[in-house]
Amino acid sequence: MSQKEWPLWEVFIRSKQGLDHKHVGSLHAADAEMAIQNARDVYTRRLEGVSIWVVESKHVHASNPDDSAAFYEPANDKIYRHPTFYQVPDSIKHM
């Protein structure tokens, strides 16, 4: 029973032309080709996709949740990045 498991792959699916690939879950496969086919069989049984990406899970690097304050909070006070920060006179159209 010391047999090696097939590697784990993360699956991303584009549900429609024009949309981003979205993470849908993971699966096991011996190689990339099989991972794509398995993704097709597992995650697109109900017309959920038009394109599939697979990435071996060990190659995914993630940010550390402990960094979230340093990473994301500095954006909180940059309200001038949002269009609603600016007052436009009512008479000005198409802006």
Binding site: G25, L27, R45
Partner: peptide, 27 residues
């Protein structure tokens, strides 16, 4: 019945994000 295989797979995937391996769970 095939859907049930799919559901099992989605759930094993979810458990694997917690550091459990499917092999160990099956064992």
């Amino acid at each position: 019945v095939q859907d049930e295989a799919g559901h099992g797979l989605y759930l094993y995937s979810a458990a694997e994000t917690l550091g459990a391996s499917r092999d160990q769970m099956l064992a």
